[in-house]
């Protein structure tokens, strides 16, 4: 059962609104705009799921996913990647993400993807 979701996106507009949308579906939401702070926050807050953008400055989403999937303490956390660019689905797959959703997304689709991973 997924309750706590960590969202990481450098676009703060998307971050805030996605957070509010998921809250309206009853999830507890944690927001992180800076991908370089993400891994320490995950190990501290232990979310049930990570929703993460791909194209972020400094540290790309797919690199983070690779790191998490190699870490035995965090590899179990399901990850959904989301992005607005082409090639993203393939990047998400190769990085080892559990699922992918294209931006812009419908909240119903996102919710059903989250439930499927719960």
């Amino acid at each position: 059962m997924i309750k706590k979701i960590m969202i990481c996106d450098d676009d703060e507009g998307i971050l805030d609104i996605t957070g509010l949308l998921l809250e309206s579906y009853g999830y507890q939401v944690l927001l992180e705009p800076d991908s370089t702070h993400l891994i320490p926050r995950i190990s501290m807050e232990k979310p049930d799921l990570l929703l993460i953008d791909i194209w972020m400055p400094q540290l790309m989403g797919d690199e983070i996913v690779r790191m998490l999937k190699r870490d035995k303490n965090m590899a179990h956390i399901p990850i959904i990647m989301f992005s607005a660019s082409r090639e993203s689905k393939r990047i998400a797959n190769e990085a080892g993400a559990d699922d992918y959703i294209a931006k812009p997304f419908s909240i119903e689709d996102l919710d059903s993807k989250i439930r499927a991973l719960g």
Binding site: G13, I14, I17, L20, S24, A84, S85, R86, K103, P104
Partner: peptide
């Protein structure tokens, strides 16, 4: 075309999500 599409879709994501949120609220 490819860059423009991506740059256009990013802000659109926020608008779409905001409208979905308003509809729910």
């Amino acid at each position: 075309l490819s860059i423009a599409s991506h740059e256009l879709k990013t802000p659109l994501t926020t608008v779409t999500a905001s409208l979905q949120l308003l509809q729910r609220m």
